Simulated assay, not measured.
Amino acid sequence: MRKGDLYEEDYNLWSDLQIAALKNRDVDALDWENLAADLDYPKYWIDHQLVMVISSLLELYGDFNAEDFEKYHWKTFVDTNRFMLNGVLEDWPHYSEKIKFAIPKAYLSAVNLMERHGKGKGFEFKFPDTCPFSFEQILEDGWYPA
């Protein structure tokens, strides 16, 4: 079986073998293509999911005089993206620190999105300079800003 096939068929085994190869400095056993993609992809995916969660929380935080249906929509969006991020942390708990570190940058992106979104709706809202949501709140199932 080729290394790339194992990546598709049994990711956990592939991952264990790649870790062992790295620890043993066995460069011939490394699946370079999938290893590089695997190390690169989660950062961008996590950043995207984080911006989506924070921007949705900001929509609720700012309220923008939203109707109940729209609030439900944003809560659903928050829940969906939280589910994805929490799934990452279940599989790769070491990404917890990466997510914490990414919050300030994701917050700035989310504020930019929400300011443009609010202006398009005719609302002006001044968001705090720093993220008003803790790491735990961002990931806590069922938590929304009051």
Rank of each mutant, 00 (worst) to 15 (best):
F135A: 03
Q18E: 06
Q18W: 01
F127G: 01
D10L: 01
W45P: 00
T130I: 13
K98H: 06
F77L: 12
L108K: 14
F125V: 12
L13S: 02
L30Y: 07
A110W: 00
S15L: 12
A37N: 14
V53W: 05
K121Y: 11
D129A: 13
G122C: 11
Q18L: 05
Y144T: 06
I99Y: 09
I99K: 05
Y7H: 02
H73C: 07
N12G: 00
S56H: 09
F83K: 12
T76L: 11
K23Y: 13
E97W: 02
A106W: 07
L139Y: 08
A146F: 10
S96K: 15
L17S: 03
N24K: 15
Q49S: 11
I103P: 03
N112F: 14
C131L: 09
F77S: 09
F83V: 00
D47K: 12
K126N: 14
N112T: 15
A20Q: 12
S55I: 06
Y61W: 11
D40I: 13
D28C: 12
W92V: 12
D10P: 05
Q49M: 14
E90M: 08
E67F: 10
A21D: 03
Q49L: 15
N65P: 00
Y95A: 00
E140G: 05
T130N: 13
W143E: 10
E140H: 09
W92G: 00
D28M: 14
H73S: 12
N34C: 04
S134F: 07
E8A: 08
F125W: 10
Y61T: 04
N81V: 06
Y107E: 03
A106V: 11
W32V: 14
L58G: 03
L85S: 01
L6T: 01
A110G: 02
V27I: 15
A36W: 12
K23C: 07
M52P: 00
I19T: 09
L17R: 08
W45V: 11
I46K: 00
G120L: 10
F64K: 02
S134E: 07
E70Y: 09
F101N: 05
F127D: 01
K71Y: 06
K121N: 11
D141T: 12
D63T: 05
G118Y: 09
K3Q: 15
D28F: 15
V51W: 00
E97K: 08
D141V: 13
E70K: 07
K3P: 06
H117W: 15
F125G: 03
F135Q: 02
P132Y: 10
G122E: 11
F77D: 05
M84K: 13
H94E: 14
E136W: 08
F64A: 01
F69N: 09
F69Q: 11
I99E: 04
D91P: 00
L85P: 00
H48I: 05
L17E: 06
E59T: 05
L89K: 02
Y11T: 00
W92F: 15
K43V: 14
T76Q: 11
